[in-house]
Structure formats: C-alpha cells, structure tokens
C-alpha cells in the first residue's frame, strides 16, 4: 500500500460487506416471505436474485431479510419493500426476473411497479 487512495480502495471494497452490521434509520429493507409456503412457491431464487442484484449494483444501505408467512399463501412468493419514510409496498407472485426489475425500478429509481403489487389485484 502506497497511498491514502489505496487505503480508500480497500475501504470501499469491504464496506458493503460489513455495512449489514450497522443499524441505520435510513436503510431500505427488502423482506422476503420464507415460510414453508413461500419456499415451496420458489422464494429462495427470488431472494437470491435480490441479493445478487443489490451486489451487482453496489447499493449501499439496502438489506434483504426474511419473514414468516403473512397469511396470503396463494400469492407467494411475497416480497415487502420498506423504503425509508415511505409506505410499505407488497409485491406478490414474485420471480427472479421480477426481483431484478424491482431493484432497478423501485429501489434505485423510486418508481413502484404497480402491476406486481398486491393492490393490482383489485
């Protein structure tokens, strides 16, 4: 290591790996339903797609977490997105492809993809 820039490069490289351990108010949380019903409907690839996409885009302060059954088993895999200061958005019948889109449109650009949400049913 020769310079402060080298040090900063290592910091940047590692920070996303450890950021997970800080609890910040302004974090975005993506919660995937991972009860038996969710797993059976294919929640794992969905969750993996989220993680992969977040890392591909090097997003800071976005975490993927899991939860149990919310009671709407027929709409699994269900994913809830909590953006700081915004209402929770619930996506249903998710797939890995849809997950990538949600990251792109919703998390990065802030546009909820209404056609995937539970509200679109009515």
């Amino acid at each position: 290591m020769k310079s402060l820039a080298d040090l900063e490069a290592i910091r940047q490289k590692t920070i996303n790996k450890v950021n997970l351990r800080n609890e910040n108010e302004g974090d975005t949380r993506i919660v995937v339903g991972m009860a038996t019903c969710g797993i059976a409907a294919g929640a794992r690839p969905v969750m993996q797609a989220f993680v992969e996409e977040i890392q591909k885009r090097n997003l800071n302060g976005v975490y993927v977490s899991q939860t149990g059954c919310v009671g709407l088993c027929k709409f699994e895999p269900i994913v809830e997105v909590y953006l700081p200061g915004k209402e929770k958005v619930t996506y249903i019948n998710m797939t890995a492809e849809k997950a990538a889109k949600v990251v792109n449109e919703h998390i990065v650009n802030g546009n909820v993809i209404s056609e995937y949400t539970i509200g679109n049913l009515e």
Binding site: R11, T14, I15, V18
Partner: peptide, 11 residues
C-alpha cells in the same frame, strides 16, 4: 484487516 479498514481503520 480489510474489515478494520472498512470502519475507517488506518485512516
């Protein structure tokens, strides 16, 4: 050491 650096170590 990388994790220490990530938390502003050696800065």
């Amino acid at each position: 050491i990388d994790e220490y650096i990530a938390y502003d170590g050696y800065k």
